[in-house]
Amino acid sequence: MAYSDKVVDHYQHPRNVGSMNQSAPDVGTGIVGAPECGDVMKLQIQVDDDNRIIDAKFKTFGCGSAIASSSLATEWVKGRTLDQALQIRNTEIVKELALPPVKIHCSVLAEDAVRAAIADVKKKRERAEADKETVSTK
């Protein structure tokens, strides 16, 4: 199967590969997998106090399309607010990378990873808020 030029470009020069400190309060981590192919994807976002994503990293063990999808996703989420990042749809990734039907699940994986990372950082913040309240009511 021939990959599109954009997939090849992301595959050969993946953007934002790496890891962040998973336990940092301003970092959200999403780890997702596709059981049909066994690919795993980790996508992390760093969020400022205004809920804006200031940095993103990913690590993907999978095919070229999965790597390209997550690479592209990290590019797209940077600079967006959490709510804006939640608007990213896998269909946009499919379109941008010209993914064939058999590789659509790779784009779904990237969307899921973004959502999981956002959910993770939101949960951390809610917990921090709750902790603050319990402290202040003491």
Binding site: I31, V32, G33, A34, P35, E36, V40, K42, K59
Partner: peptide, 19 residues
Amino acid sequence: AAEVRDVPGDLLAEVMVLR
């Protein structure tokens, strides 16, 4: 397989670390 796509417990995170 389409209905339940996850794995037991924290296996995915473990797989990531193993990788």
